[in-house]
Nucleic acid binder design. Structure first.
Lengths: 292, 292
DNA sequence: GTTCCGCATGAATCGATAG
DNA sequence: ACTATCGATTCATGCGGAA
């Protein structure tokens, strides 16, 4: 099996036109929030946000397969003491475009930005809007089942590396054995609330969302060999995770520094040797240049 | 101090007219959701929901003090595979009425309703929309502080260079004073995500929300002696909690069974004996009939 | 090898000050 | 008057070095 990762440098309003219609299984993205990342992106005024986004969502509607899903990570900012309404207006307008607003998942950010204000508390959640093209779409619920019990909710569901290491390290002290017991025990379907910490550590890349976020939705809405698209690639979290999970992916990024950074990391074409047929294909020369 | 609990039987569209303007400090309510509880309000169709609610929110705007808050517990239901949009439309329309949409809190229901569907998971959260009349409103943040994490123990022993720099930027005496505040502090401010289980006890009343929900907002937005209003009283959770917390309250309920049930439980006027003056007042005969 | 501990930092927001 | 910049506020997390 061959896994491709195609990344493009440019404005997704243009670059999306290259992507064929009905070709993508999952769009997972986190667009720049209104006026939020001014330094890196232009900074879209809250009043202009919907107007700016609609041509993009129209393209996304075109490239998504009828069975596909579009997961939009977004949160309205506070303007003049009030929450802006551009996200709601966007949902209403996207429905007019033909999108179905199927569900709203909540990302509960366990470590939210600190601060104190007279009229509000720290903002500790973001929206994960789930749009589809049709009522029948692919959803592989069994792939994201979680062990039952509070312990599992706080631990296994979160995909932080530290937790994984800690759990592995406990093997031998009797604790690791418990994990295997848990895994064999009853598993339950998750809910529409995801508990994940943001990544704010000393890595050289600063991702807008933790890897666990795209990972969960890639598991849920795609299978191996499917195609994932992130039109606002940023540091490439979606594509890196997709590649690791043997999904083809497309990434578009307007900032060349980010683009170059991702290009360094990504293997454009990887072959997974599963059966003889695949092995045979590997010997043939590959002409495809995925990264440009 | 005297604590009153006034409950009314009737449609809040009418009964609210009795409540004086600018007299309520907090409105906390959970209206019947669209097409849910059909018997009660005849079942409001999702398409008619906004139209039905706006006259009520207009009354609520009238009776709320300029420093008061309106907390609306609501969630859109699924209609034909899609989330309805009436909550969003309602927010947009209420803003036109003059409401400020200050914040959206999330109630994370730790034990959500069971079930399995092909296109979604269990719904485990509800909205708590916070509306105000003005940008300056009463908020007693200290009353809802929560225990701090282990963070404090390690952090405060030795101050990091970054923390020193951050604090040095503040000119003058701020530094030492600020640290001493932290040293004595064992609690932190909460976030805008509330983790509460639904109450599924065997009482004959089935409350829409647990007592912890109104309790948190009553603590946050009112002080003793203030007035709390619930125009969709139901089983009276808001009023019972308010009474226990020494807040006056008003409840309106259209279903007589609910009304009678709450009437049984509630003490219309309770006197809290705090100082001699109050004691003296107690001896005087009371004429007020609060429940009618 | 584990565990412990120090430390930087993050899609934040408000109010005051400056242009 | 209205907008842009800046300082102040504050907490959970994971990495890396130390014990």
């Amino acid at each position: 099996m061959e896994v491709r990762t195609d990344i493009y440098l440019g404005d997704c309003r243009e670059e999306l036109k290259i992507v064929p219609m009905d070709s993508v299984d999952l769009i997972f993205t986190s667009p720049p929030y209104a006026d939020q990342r001014k330094k890196t992106y232009g900074g879209i005024h809250p009043d202009k946000y919907v107007e700016w986004f609609l041509p993009i969502s129209e393209q996304l509607l075109r490239v998504l397969k009828p069975t596909g899903s579009f997961v939009l990570n977004i949160k309205e900012r506070v303007v003049n003491g009030e929450r802006s309404t551009y996200v709601m207006e966007l949902i209403l307008e996207m429905k007019k475009q033909g999108w179905l607003w199927t569900e709203e998942y909540i990302w509960h950010k366990k470590n939210s930005y600190p601060g104190k204000w007279p009229n509000r508390f720290r903002d500790s959640w973001e929206r994960l809007l789930h749009f589809t093209k049709s009522k029948k779409f692919n959803m592989y619920q069994d792939k994201v089942m979680v062990p039952m019990g509070d312990w599992a909710k706080t631990r296994l569901k979160n995909l932080s590396e530290t937790d994984k290491k800690r759990d592995e390290s406990k093997v031998g002290s009797g604790f690791g054995k418990n994990i295997s017991n848990w895994m064999n025990r009853e598993v339950a379907y998750p809910t529409n609330v995801l508990h994940l910490a943001t990544e704010c550590n000393n890595k050289n890349h600063s991702a807008a969302f933790p890897e666990g976020l795209p990972e969960w939705f890639i598991k849920l809405f795609t299978k191996e060999g499917d195609t994932v698209l992130d039109p606002f690639m940023g540091s490439g979290t979606t594509n890196i995770v997709a590649n690791r999970m043997k999904r083809n992916s497309i990434g578009i990024e307007i900032v060349s520094e980010y683009y170059e950074m991702v290009k360094e990391v990504i293997q454009p074409v990887e072959l997974y040797l599963i059966d003889p047929k695949e092995k045979y294909e590997k010997t043939k020369p590959k002409r495809r240049i995925s990264i440009r």
